[in-house]
Design a binder for these strands. Structure first.
Lengths: 251, 251
DNA sequence: CGGGCCCTTGAATTCTCTCAAACAATGTGG
DNA sequence: CCACATTGTTTGAGAGAATTCAAGGGCCCG
């Protein structure tokens, strides 16, 4: 990472964590809050396009996204890229690498992103002293697994238009839940290449598929982003029930 | 589940757990062993084709596979099925449902399968008293996530023959590691329909793709199963590095 | 022996990809 | 301010990949 891309700050206190106030997330008890405050060793801000974590590296840190959009991906040797999932506020990233030693995927920022930085070495203490947070970590991993299951079903068995509808509906629902959208139409800051790499389609075919959704007035494509107009329509096309999360843990 | 499909027994003591003796798995300390012995409340045996866990259910149990093969899958309303991953000895299943309340996928047996049955309600105690096992649970979840990431890359970005090669190489490597193969050629007890539902391809195209691999003498198709002859060839085609696990936790 | 399940193959159709070209928006340097 | 490069979107056309449809054969089991 270049200097331009990263800045270290530490202005947000965990006690005032903006995510804590959202219904979406579960609340910490004082003892947990005390630990997390110690666990967090800094804050990281990156510009759009910056790589936050890179496949093959052994990072000493894990992060929670405070604000902004990003995505998790893997590539083949010849450059083919598959986006695995999108990353939004409240998401913990780098846990996989912290446990198994080496990152098996990369993470890149789509917008300006700020992250809380945690020390991997303190994970032991977390498991030793804070059962509720340990449980939450497993929960978070299981949640990611659930989304991946659904993505796999989508790429494997849904048609191009169903896939696109599912993906956009998923992003929209997650974005609303995490406060990335102020309630009205969400503007997702991605290119059609990102969509293509998520759906497992070529960019040309992705473009034609998005056009179909747009012609039904379900979405609108903006300069470098997508606006969802009717989630219900997308859900119907994809025959997906949508997200059903009440309160989720985060760290 | 019908009576024919399930039998409850409890003949394998955790102290004599056959998986413990394998290098693949990490060893328990006496205290952990004591807990796990209490945690395990029974044993379940199911016949091939039986459903072990079903999407939408709220199971009071989670399981570790003691022996046999199975697979995890999801379906769309119209019946399209996507196999997410295969299940082998040492794999923990049902964790996702135990944490988030409801199973989001189903699990079916490919061969006779025996499972250790654990009480979901004792998970709290595990997190409260056994940090090392808590850590292991997260580790296990992260491992599954890693495999899913790779599967997603495969289905999204690899060609049909690369996909098939990757899948068979993965299964072979996992099978050898867990002792399902006695060292020589592994016989995987699946139909081509299973392969198709894993790769996201039609059965016809799957058949033609497998024929290509067979004509290169990399695999051989048997009655209701597949035998891997040259993993190296499969790894090369798929441009995949293969598994690299030294010792993994299990419960 | 018949039925069911699995594997195999060919042919027509549909979907998706690559190639190619053009356009719009943005940013840069002169 | 313009010329130019870059990036992202759009469209058409032909090639390639994968699907569906259809049919036949093998095997096991009741």
């Amino acid at each position: 990472m270049t200097a331009k891309e990263t800045r270290n700050t530490n202005n947000t206190s965990c006690a005032d964590c903006p995510l804590q106030t959202r219904d979406e997330f579960r609340k910490f008890c004082p003892k947990e809050l005390e630990f997390i405050t110690r666990f967090k060793t800094g804050e990281l801000s990156v510009d759009p396009g910056a790589t936050i974590l890179v496949e093959g590296s052994h990072s000493a840190h894990l992060f929670t996204v405070l604000s902004g959009w990003g995505f998790r991906y893997k590539t083949l040797e010849d450059g083919r890229r598959q986006i695995l999932n999108f990353v939004m506020p409240g998401d913990l990233v780098g846990l996989q690498g912290s446990l198994t030693g080496e990152m098996q995927h990369s993470i890149e920022a789509l917008s300006p992103v700020t992250l809380c930085v945690f020390e991997r070495s303190r994970l032991k203490e977390l498991y030793r002293e804070y059962p509720s947070l340990s449980y939450d970590l497993t929960w978070i991993a299981a949640r990611e697994e659930r989304i991946l299951d659904e993505n796999l079903l989508s790429i494997g068995r849904r048609s191009a238009i169903e896939r696109a509808a599912y993906l956009l509906a998923l992003i929209q629902q997650r974005a609303v839940a995490t406060g990335l959208s102020n309630g009205e139409n969400v503007r997702i800051p991605i290119t059609q290449q990102h969509i293509a790499d998520t759906l497992g389609l070529s960019i040309v075919h992705t473009n034609k598929t998005l056009k179909k959704l747009a012609s039904r007035n379900l979405i609108r494509w903006l300069d470098r982003g997508c606006e969802i107009l009717k989630v219900e329509g997308l859900l119907e096309i994809s025959q997906w029930e949508g997200l059903s999360e009440t309160s989720r843990p985060f760290i």
